[in-house]
Amino acid sequence: MPSQWSKKDERQYEHVKDSAEDRGRSEGRAKEIAARTVNKQRRKEGRTPNKTTSGKGNPRTDLEDRTVDELHNIASDMKIEGRSKMRKQELIEAIRDKR
């Protein structure tokens, strides 16, 4: 469990994990479900320090519907030069050209 979790978060984690195991989930899957549940609750309450995603978004989502951060992460993976100075539309065009 992460060190920034409160005692309440830890109790919730244990309860959800035990419940998932009682329903037949493996220990690893139960731990994942519990951690995701606690983190979702922390985000909902605004208690998670980092609220932004560092991901690339849903792969089925159009590029126009993604955030600039997501586009930047995609461009970074594709090693597109000059991406840090590009605007959203420029990132989209560069990603499409590279694909």
Results as ranks from 00 to 15, higher is better:
Lys17Glu: 15
Met1Asn: 12
Gly55Pro: 03
Lys98Met: 10
Gly82Glu: 02
Gln89Ser: 11
Asn58Met: 03
Lys8Leu: 08
Ala20Gly: 00
Ser6Tyr: 00
Asp22Tyr: 05
Arg99Leu: 04
Arg25Thr: 12
Ile74Phe: 08
Glu14Trp: 13
Arg60Trp: 14
Ala75Val: 05
Asp77Cys: 13
Asp9Ile: 14
Thr48Trp: 04
Ile74Cys: 06
Ala30Arg: 09
Ala75Cys: 14
Asn58Ala: 05
Glu93Asp: 07
Ser19Trp: 01
Lys51Thr: 03
Asn50Ile: 01
Leu91Pro: 05
Asp69Lys: 14
Gly24Lys: 12
Glu21Tyr: 15
Asp62His: 11
Glu10Trp: 02
Val38Gln: 09
Arg11Ile: 14
Val68Trp: 10
Lys40Glu: 09
Gly46Val: 09
Ala34Asn: 10
Arg87Leu: 06
Gly24Phe: 10
His72Asn: 06
Thr67His: 02
Pro49Asp: 12
Val16Arg: 00
Ser76Tyr: 09
Arg29Pro: 04
Ser19Asp: 11
Ser84Leu: 06
Ile74Ser: 13
Met78Trp: 13
Ala35Ile: 04
Arg25Asp: 12
Thr67Trp: 05
Lys85Ala: 15
Ile33Leu: 10
Asn39His: 03
Met86Gly: 14
Ala34Tyr: 07
Ala34Phe: 02
Ala94His: 14
Arg87Thr: 15
Asp22Phe: 09
Arg96Gln: 13
Ser76Gly: 08
Met86Glu: 11
Lys7Ala: 15
Glu81Pro: 06
Gln12His: 02
Ser19Tyr: 03
Lys40Asp: 07
Asn58Ser: 13
Arg96Met: 04
Lys17Tyr: 08
Tyr13His: 13
Arg99Trp: 03
Ala34Asp: 01
Arg87Tyr: 05
Lys31Gly: 11
Glu45Pro: 00
Asp62Val: 00
Arg87Met: 11
Lys51Asp: 01
Ser26Gly: 15
Pro59Cys: 10
Gln41Ile: 08
Arg83Ser: 15
Ile95Glu: 07
Glu81Trp: 01
Gly28Thr: 03
Ala94Thr: 10
Ala20His: 05
Lys44Asp: 08
Arg60Ile: 12
Asn50Asp: 00
Gln89Thr: 04
Asp22Pro: 03
Arg43Ile: 06
Ala34Cys: 07
Arg66Lys: 09
Ser3Tyr: 11
Pro59Trp: 08
Asp97His: 08
Thr67Gln: 01
Thr67Ile: 00
Ala35Trp: 00
Glu70Arg: 04
Asp97Ser: 10
Ser76Ala: 08
Glu21Asn: 11
Ile74Glu: 08
Gly82Asp: 14
Arg60Asn: 15
Glu14Arg: 14
Arg11Tyr: 09
Ile33Met: 12
Ala20Met: 02
Met78Gly: 13
Glu14Lys: 14
Arg47Gly: 04
His15Asp: 11
Ser54Phe: 11
Asp18Ile: 06
